[in-house]
């Protein structure tokens, strides 16, 4: 059995991913900014000029509140899903606890999230929406999203070892989610009977909370936070248990 320093190992693996990713990009961190800015520009054009809407103010910030959590979720889940198969050298050659592979992959995507959150905050200020005390909620709601993605990544990365099509299922799911998560429409326009489902989706709940905090300068709803906590930790527990069950024969299947 591997008896070592989990935290030190986790830090090193996360750091390694960062370094490898950014050393191979000539513009480095700039790419993390360019993608959401381009998407924001295009979607703002479509949803204010081509399909005009009059009830959403500060549309670019409104949009970014949806795009930032979504794009983190997208990158972290997809890279997390393929992480165990792609790190086969580690899984087959070093007796480290295997859970650390998908978790470190998700955590290393957090750099994107941090950079894009800073962009979002700058835009918020740029549109004349000031700082408010409820910004203190941000670390908590974002941390919950990370817990949620870690759980999903544990589950799908283990399944992906046995059924390699899993990554394509995840990629398709992300495509569908782009429309089913309120990125470019508001919660108010969702029919009442579907709202409950939306609130159980941590990505949607996170977007909802971000908009409450940044655009309305109010605290996120207690019921939203509660659902976010319950669903995130439940998914993490499910992923953890499934991974433990499945990791026994990773060696034979990679």
């Amino acid at each position: 059995m591997w008896r070592g320093d989990y935290w030190f190992l986790l830090q090193n693996l996360v750091l390694k991913d960062f370094k490898v990713r950014y050393r191979n990009m000539s513009l480095g961190v700039f790419w993390s900014l360019l993608n959401p800015l381009l998407m924001m520009g295009v979607l703002t054009f479509v949803w204010t000029r081509i399909v005009p809407n009059h009830h959403i103010k500060n549309f670019p910030v409104f949009l970014l509140c949806g795009l930032v959590p979504y794009s983190f979720f997208n990158i972290a889940w997809v890279t997390g899903t393929t992480s165990v198969v792609e790190n086969s050298a580690l899984v087959k050659r070093v007796p480290v606890p295997r859970e650390i592979v998908p978790i470190s992959t998700v955590l290393s995507s957090c750099l994107h999230l941090v950079i894009q959150i800073l962009l979002l905050l700058l835009m918020t200020l740029g549109f004349g929406l000031g700082v408010n005390i409820h910004w203190l909620w941000l670390p908590l709601v974002l941390a919950l999203e990370v817990v949620f993605v870690c759980g999903l990544a544990l589950l799908t990365s283990a399944v992906n070892v046995y059924v390699r099509d899993t990554r394509y299922v995840v990629e398709s799911a992300m495509l569908i989610l782009f429309w089913l998560v309120p990125i470019f429409y508001s919660f108010e326009s969702i029919p009442k009977r579907f709202v409950f489902i939306y609130e159980l989706n941590p990505v949607a709940a996170l977007i909802f909370s971000l908009r409450e905090i940044l655009l309305r300068a109010s605290a996120p709803h207690a019921s939203t936070i509660l659902k976010l906590v319950v669903v995130s930790f439940a998914v993490f527990a499910l992923g953890w248990v499934a991974f433990r069950k499945l990791k026994g024969s990773f060696y034979e299947h990679i």
């Binding site: 320093d5 030190f8 090193n12 693996l13 390694k16 370094k19 580690l90």
Partner: peptide, 17 residues
């Protein structure tokens, strides 16, 4: 893509140091 020193650190961690 990482330097020898960075690799030494990562490998130390993998070995449980």
């Amino acid at each position: 893509d990482l330097t020898g020193a960075e690799n030494v650190r990562i490998n130390s961690a993998l070995l449980g140091l």
